[in-house]
């Protein structure tokens, strides 16, 4: 096509773009994916029956605080990598804060528990399935983020894929809290994080292929 015709055609479709449209697009993608994951839980493994009482306890909020703050920090990385001139990443250290805080809570718990109980506490009832469930639930959220990226312009595709995978994993873990009855911080620190890490790895592997534009 002739370049002048191309320009005319492109300019005829000049819609206004809001200031925060990158953030908004990412938010829509991750929330839509999160809703899909929640529906998936409802349709398969179900919500924990004591969710109402659990939400009054501290351990539920420790879990949520961990996964939600990790999602937010990861999403901030994703938003930076969604721009072509991303340069040096700012705020990467923020990802470490939730991990350190949860580790501190875990150490406190260990100190207050007799060491004969440590293994039971660490493995819980669901250590074998937890990482895989988090990984599976991250798939719809990752798909939502892929939709967001259709109007974004990452130039470091591997890093952008990893950041999107990390966001999807951490948000999937947040959603998974409505099912998971585990209470100990070291359980969450190990098995939730393992699921989130797997999602990050998958994102890193598929990023260069799926985020091209």
């Amino acid at each position: 096509m002739n370049t002048d015709d191309l320009i005319r055609q492109l300019a005829s479709d000049t819609r206004p773009v809001g200031r925060n449209s990158v953030a908004r697009r990412l938010a829509i993608g991750i929330v839509a994916g999160g809703i899909a994951s929640a529906l998936l839980i409802l349709a398969s493994i179900g919500v924990r029956p004591d969710l109402g009482t659990a939400m009054q306890g501290a351990s539920f909020w420790v879990k949520w605080g961990y996964t939600l703050s990790l999602s937010i920090a990861a999403l901030m990385m994703t938003a930076q990598l969604a721009r072509p001139d991303s340069g040096r990443l700012r705020g990467l250290w923020a990802l470490g804060i939730p991990v350190l805080l949860l580790a501190a809570v875990g150490l406190l718990e260990l100190a207050r528990t007799p060491s004969s109980q440590w293994l039971v506490m660490w493995l819980g009832h669901s250590w074998k399935s937890c990482p895989w469930l988090v990984l599976s639930l991250s798939a719809p959220i990752f798909a939502g983020l892929l939709w967001s990226f259709r109007r974004l312009a990452p130039t470091r595709l591997r890093a952008a894929g990893a950041a999107a995978g990390l966001s999807a994993g951490a948000f999937a873990a947040t959603v998974y809290c409505i099912h998971c009855p585990e209470v100990s911080a070291i359980f969450v620190l190990t098995w939730y994080s393992l699921g989130i890490l797997l999602a990050t790895l998958v994102g890193m592997l598929v990023g260069p292929r799926l985020l091209r534009w």
Partner: peptide
């Protein structure tokens, strides 16, 4: 032409506070 199309379709990623030419 590819770049013009990208400038158009991905223009949401331009941050108004930063240099346009760098973007």
């Amino acid at each position: 032409q590819d770049t013009l199309i990208a400038v158009h379709t991905r223009r949401a990623t331009y941050d108004r506070g930063r240099a346009f030419t760098a973007w």
